[in-house]
Design a protein around this nucleic acid. Structure first.
Lengths: 217, 217
DNA sequence: CCCCTATCTGAACACCGTCAAGAACTAGCG
DNA sequence: CGCTAGTTCTTGACGGTGTTCAGATAGGGG
C-alpha cells in the first residue's frame, strides 16, 4: 500500500525484498518471531510461498537481514542519546536508557536481533560487523568519561564495567518486553509504574552507584 | 532406559508424563526450545505422536511443566547460595551469581523458563506462583541486609534496586547463553575469559558498587 | 468374570520450510 | 520493431509439524 504510486501492480513486484521485510515487521507486531511464518509473510506481500527464495536464502536469512537493520537503528539511537548529554556522568545512564527504550519502542526489531536461529552460526558476515560496531561504540563512550577512566585503567576493570552496563540494559529490556516488569504479573510490591519508568529509574540508579562509588574509590 | 527395571515395556507406559519431560530435556541439550518437536519427544519416549495429549494439553503445557520445575530448581539454588554466606554484603553478589550459574549449568531448564509461548497468557496458575515465589525470596534477601535496609526504606528505592539486581543477573545469564560473552565472537577487547568468570566478576562489581555507594550515601 | 475407565494407537487435517521445473515478464541487442 | 537472455514469480511436490478423533488395548473395581 505504501509502494511508489506510479508503479503498477505488475507481475514483477517493485521491490519485493523490502516488501518482505516490512511485511515481517508488521506481523511481528502481534506475533512472536518463533511463530513467524515465511508463507504468511509472502501471503501478506501478495506473492507465492516460494517467491522469497529469490531474495533470501531462506527464513533465517530474512531474519538476519532484519537484524542487521535493527543493529543500525539501535546504534543510531544510542549515538543520538549520548550526543545530547554534556560529557558528564550521565552518558552511562543515557546509553542504558536508549537501549531499553529502543527495545520497548521497536520490539519487533529487538526480538529478531536476539533470536536463536541467528545466534549460533557465524553465518552472516554483516551481522557480526553490526554487533562489533555497537560494542566498539560503547567502549568508546565509557573511555570518554573522565571520572571512570582512571578507575578503569588502573584496575583493568574496563570490560567488567562494560559487561555490567550491557547486562543491565539487556536484562532490563528483556524483562520489560517479556512482561515481567511493570504489571501486576508477578511482583510482590509496588512496581505499578510503566515499564519505561522502571527502566529509567534503574538506569539512573546504576549510573548513580557507579559515580558515587568511583568518586570514593 | 532409566525406567524402574521391574516395569515391563507394556502397552501402558509406567510414567509417561515424567518420561516426556525427561525426553524433552535431553533433546534441549542439543537443540533450541523453538526447534523442539513434540513428535520427536514422543518418538524418543517410544510412544505415538498423539500420546502426550493425554498428559498435557499440548506442547505449550509441556513446556510450562518444565518451566515450573525449573523455577523450583532455581529457587533452591539461590536459597543454598545465600545460606552459605554470613549475612554480610555478599548476599547480593551470591544471588546474582547463583542465578547466572543456574542458567549456565541448566541451560535447557533456563531457556524454557523464558520462552515466548508461556509468557503472554496468564495460562498456567502454577507458573505465576513459582515466579512470585522467587521475587518474594529476593525481596526478603535484600531487606535482610542491614547496610542496604536503611537506604532502601528511606529512599523508597527497594523495588528499583531489586530490579537492577534482577536485570543484571538476567541480562548476564542471557548474554552468556547466547554466546555474546566469553568468546571472540563480538567483543572488541580482552574478555577472553570463560563466561563463568565474567559473570563472577560482574556480580562482584555490582555488589561492590552498591556497598560502596550506600556506605557513603 | 465382566465392564469401565484411563491410556495409547492410527489415520487424518491443515500448516510449515524448502526445492525443482516451468511460466510470465523485462531488458537489451540486433 | 523483433528476438533472445535472464530475472522474477508460480505451481506442485516432499517431508515434517501440532493437533484432533475414532477406535484398539490394558488394568482395576464391581
Amino acid at each position: 500500500m505504501l509502494k511508489t504510486p506510479d508503479v503498477k501492480a505488475s507481475y514483477h513486484h517493485g521491490d519485493l525484498r523490502r516488501a518482505l521485510v516490512d511485511a515481517s515487521l508488521e506481523i511481528l507486531t502481534s506475533r512472536d518471531v518463533a511463530d513467524l511464518s515465511l508463507r504468511e509473510v509472502a501471503r501478506r506481500a501478495g506473492v507465492s510461498p516460494a517467491a522469497p527464495y529469490h531474495h533470501f536464502g531462506g527464513k533465517a536469512e530474512l531474519l538476519a537481514a532484519i537484524a542487521v537493520e535493527a543493529y543500525g537503528l539501535l546504534e543510531e539511537r544510542m549515538r543520538l542519546a549520548v550526543a545530547g548529554t554534556d560529557e558528564g556522568g550521565a552518558t552511562l545512564r543515557d546509553c542504558v536508557r536508549a537501549y531499553v527504550r529502543f527495545a520497548l519502542e521497536q520490539p519487533s526489531h529487538f526480538r529478531v536481533m536476539h533470536h536463536a536461529e541467528l545466534r549460533n552460526g557465524e553465518t552472516h558476515e554483516e551481522l557480526a560487523k553490526a554487533r562489533q560496531s555497537i560494542w566498539q561504540f560503547l567502549a568508546e563512550v565509557l573511555r570518554g568519561d573522565p571520572v571512570k577512566k582512571d578507575f578503569l585503567i588502573e584496575a583493568g576493570n574496563e570490560s567488567t564495567l562494560l559487561c555490567l552496563a550491557w547486562a543491565t540494559a539487556h536484562g532490563l529490556a528483556t524483562l520489560c518486553l517479556d512482561g515481567y516488569l511493570g504489571s501486576k504479573l508477578s511482583m510482590p510490591f509496588d512496581v505499578a509504574q510503566e515499564p519505561e519508568a522502571v527502566a529509567d529509574a534503574v538506569s539512573a540508579l546504576l549510573a548513580t552507584l557507579v559515580d558515587t562509588a568511583l568518586r570514593r574509590g
